[in-house]
């Protein structure tokens, strides 16, 4: 379970406060779209949920446990094992193959290379980019790169997947593909229930999300 309680965040001490004591429980097995006007902290909320930013006040609860003030090493470990990230620009390593990018979180989680690569190939196949496993990110399309990013977010089988504007740079067809991948990751197609949170201002994503959290 992923939840926030009385959450407030400010980038600087005494600066503008975001979320104003937000309390919300994100439903496992559902895609929750976080939306709102620009500057309201959609991406920031994702980074707080992803334990990369520490809230000014309030708590981030992951499986009933308050993890928002955990030590850096603990938060890194939680990111590697329980949280998957999909960045807006896919953020794949341009110098490595697609498969190498996909297995990266699994290596940080302590998996063996063989196990990680097998899991990575399986996910790439499920997302329709298995043939691109040994290609460089520069050799795949934007839509394919974003599906690779989804595969990377899922490689350690995390309980939470956070996606920051995952369709922001994609056309409708590719956005549909990425959204379908995220829905499948949430388990809405009958698979394992995950909490998927998508920060977006894309009406198409909002239309297809299971829940919407407006900031």
């Amino acid at each position: 379970m992923l939840a926030v309680r009385d959450l407030t965040f400010a980038y600087t001490c005494g600066g503008e406060e975001l979320f104003e004591g937000l309390t919300h429980v994100f439903t496992p097995g559902a895609v929750t779209a976080v939306t709102g006007p620009s500057g309201r902290g959609k991406s920031t909320l994702l980074y707080v949920l992803g334990l990369m930013l520490t809230p000014t006040r309030g708590q981030v609860l992951l499986g009933e446990r308050d993890v928002s003030t955990a030590a850096d090493a603990t938060r890194s470990r939680l990111r590697a094992h329980q949280i998957g990230f999909v960045f807006q620009d896919s953020a794949l390593d341009p110098t490595r193959t697609v498969l190498d990018s996909v297995v990266e979180p699994a290596l940080y989680a302590g998996w063996s290379l063989g196990t990680a690569r097998a899991r990575g190939r399986e996910l790439l196949g499920q997302l329709g980019v298995g043939a691109r496993a040994e290609h460089r990110p520069g050799e795949v399309s934007g839509g394919q790169a974003q599906r690779v990013a989804v595969a990377r977010a899922l490689v350690t089988d995390p309980a939470v997947v956070l996606a920051d504007e995952p369709t922001g740079n994609l056309d409708r067809d590719n956005a549909t593909g990425v959204l379908a991948a995220l829905s499948a990751a949430a388990g809405t197609d009958g698979g394992t229930a995950r909490t998927v949170v998508v920060a977006t201002h894309d009406p198409f994503v909002l239309e297809h999300a299971d829940e919407v959290l407006a900031l």
Binding site: A80, P105, Y108
Partner: peptide
């Protein structure tokens, strides 16, 4: 910096 930031976001510890 983007490469190292991505690694941190994906779970690499400071020690790593």
């Amino acid at each position: 910096r983007a490469d190292l930031g991505r690694r941190r976001a994906l779970g690499a510890t400071r020690t790593a």
